[in-house]
Design a protein around this nucleic acid. Structure first.
Length: 443
RNA sequence: CUAGUAAUAGCACAAUUUGGCAGUGCGCUACAUUUGGGAUGUAGAGGUUGAGGGUUCAAAUCCCUCUUACUAGACCA
């Protein structure tokens, strides 16, 4: 893709938000756009990054035997009346409603109602169970106060999954299975989000855990053990026997390294039990011919929130600690490489264009900075605004038959022979697809 | 919903205190010179000052109402 076409606003960055510097940078450079409080449009690169995140989630859940479906975003209010939750959502003003002459609808804030409605007409026998459905899509909640750009919005992207089992044992199995899947997902995304036991009072469920990412910009407090790197619910300290508990359960001998840290909730796994199955008449026939309620779990990952945290964690700083740009993780970056041609030199320009076209034909994610009247320095800066892991200048070094490539995450530079160039990046790109643990070819 | 702050060109702001020609920088368009770490000059386009009302010879400026955004609380991925 040509850089002139990705909608980038090239500018000097000033007065970046202290708490969310990267997201503020994305706004200032036109990569995301605010339409209203908590409502954002995604430009080209952030949108592709979001899709790559979704790809990892979908592939992993599929591997864990989950079944991807798509439930309506515009839902009839009748199913919310059935579950008994409409009044609460309406009185809390948490729901976007569409009241028409031919029926009342709402934009889905969540999908328990919809998925039970979907399941009960097809999960009619014990032979159909257990099963877990999931989907990724926009959810709508009229948040009283949006905050942190993409971290909390009125519309946001969420993966939501729902498991249906015959009994508590099925639920336990599925719950643990999804938990493993989540651990794998966050590992692949390069985020150290950990399950933390949550207080589920008031929901009637039996067990729940939140996947928390330690970060100073978080809204929640957790306990964090600096030695083992494990995270715990801060309510743990209220237990009188917490020292024994930590030792017995996690082998933590010394609780001195336990500190309170801010964290962001990226995911949630939750045992629902038969609550919605009961209220919405979700039943199956068991081996004896009796009608039984599904035993359900629900599971969510905030996709746009995860995207925001990946961005915030991709920051590059100068030696004196100032914001210098971003470098996205290699395995999810929509574009691996940013090519800067020396555009006043016809021969070099042509060479760089040839390589660019060859890379595209090999399915390598590559950006070509075709903008004129811009200094090379400015373009290098822009590569760190788009967040490509690597930037290559097709300039002076071409006379020696080599291309200088910089690793944006650490500033290291290496020279690659012109004839090896396409091969290197094709290999890097295909490793990425195989999801092999990546060690960059260019150190 | 409560409290505080604000709203002026695509963006960042000035002019509001003391009412009197709608300004600056960036960005955008054209031309020229530039081009290895965010260039320079010249010319140009771009405005119902968030909306509505009031005071006044005269309102971006003073007064009232509304709306929206930001920050702090309850909700949440």
């Amino acid at each position: 893709m040509k850089v002139s076409q990705i909608g980038l606003i090239s500018r000097k960055l000033s007065n970046l938000d202290e708490q969310f510097p990267v997201q503020d940078m994305l706004i200032q450079t036109g990569q995301i756009d605010q339409f209203a409080s908590g409502i954002y449009a995604y430009g080209h690169v952030p949108y592709l990054l979001k899709r790559n995140i979704e790809r990892i989630i979908i592939d992993t859940l599929t591997k864990y035997r989950c079944s991807e479906i798509s439930l309506p975003v515009l839902q009839p209010e009748s199913i919310w009346i059935e579950s008994g939750r409409l009044d609460k959502y309406v009185s809390d003003d948490a729901m976007f409603r569409a009241l028409t002459n031919r029926g009342n609808y709402c934009l889905a804030p969540t999908a328990e109602e919809a998925v039970v409605s979907f399941a009960r007409s097809r999960l009619t026998s014990y032979k159909h169970l257990p099963v877990t459905y999931f989907q990724i899509g926009q959810k709508f909640r009229n948040e009283i106060r949006s905050r942190g750009f993409l971290l909390r919005g009125k519309s946001f992207d969420m993966m939501d999954a729902y498991s249906f089992g015959r009994n508590q044992e099925d639920l336990n199995n599925e719950y643990e299975s999804i938990k493993m899947a989540y651990i794998e997902i966050f590992e692949n995304l390069g985020l150290n989000a950990q399950p933390v036991g949550a207080d589920n009072g008031g929901f009637g469920g039996s067990k729940s855990e939140e996947f928390m990412l330690v970060s100073d910009i978080g809204e929640d407090n957790i306990l964090f053990d600096e030695v083992s790197g494990k995270a715990f619910n801060s309510e743990l300290l209220e237990r009188e026997d917490y020292k024994e508990y930590l030792k017995d359960t996690y082998g933590i001998e010394n609780t001195d390294s336990l500190i309170t840290r801010k964290a962001v909730e990226l995911g949630h796994i939750f045992q629902l039990g038969d609550k919605y199955a009961k209220s919405m008449n979700g039943t199956f026939t068991d081996e004896e011919g009796n009608q039984q309620n599904y035993v359900m779990g629900c599971y969510g990952i905030g996709v746009s929130r995860t995207l925001a945290m990946i961005y915030e964690n991709s920051i590059i700083k100068t030696s004196d600690g100032k914001f210098d740009g971003i470098s996205l993780p290699v395995n999810i970056a929509p574009y691996l490489l940013y090519i800067i041609p020396k555009s006043d030199d016809k021969e070099k320009l042509e060479q760089s264009l040839n390589i660019y076209n060859e890379l595209i034909n090999n399915n390598v994610g590559v950006l070509f900075d075709d903008r004129e009247d811009m200094s090379i320095g400015a373009k290098i800066k822009d590569s760190k605004v788009v967040g490509t892991p690597y930037v290559a200048v097709f300039g002076k070094s071409l006379e020696r038959g080599v291309i200088e490539v910089e690793n944006n995450s650490n500033g290291n530079k290496v020279e690659i022979k012109l004839e090896d160039f396409v091969k290197y990046f094709t290999e890097l790109q295909s490793k990425k697809k195989d999801k092999v643990k990546l060690e960059s070819l260019i150190k």
